[in-house]
Amino acid sequence: MNSYRYDEIDIGKEEEFDVVVTGEMLDAFGIITGDVNPLHTDADYAGSKGYKGRVAYGMLTASFLSTLAGVYLPGKYSLIQSTEIKFAEPVYIGDRLNIKGEVTEKNDTYKLIFLKVTIRNGSGKKVCRGKMQIQVAED
């Protein structure tokens, strides 16, 4: 886990990691949230709507932004204040996602970093994009 302090982070700094979406992740997310919409649970139903399989919950994809902030940028001292996200393309079981954040702005008064975040699938297509506002906590 990274543990960047506010002063160690410059505008332009980037961090990224990859994760493969599994059926077990979708199942677990469905149990935790109670979202039993068949688009996420029933491959036949999803196919009838024009998708090539069970569609991953958008909020599951977005949940990796928690990891981006809490483990990578800034890591240990992360306090997420807000997240704005857009879901551009569907994500499927087996997709390898690349989750990336870049610092676009800082605020010294509150020790905030502002990230531009993008999540791409294995083909390089942007499936999710957005912004995060994160406070870098002191001891």
């Binding site: 204040q81 807000s82 605020n107 008064t109 509150y110 905030l112």
Partner: peptide, 9 residues
């Protein structure tokens, strides 16, 4: 408190 931060920023 969050919007207060956003106002100041």
């Amino acid at each position: 408190s969050l919007e207060h931060i956003n106002l100041v920023v």
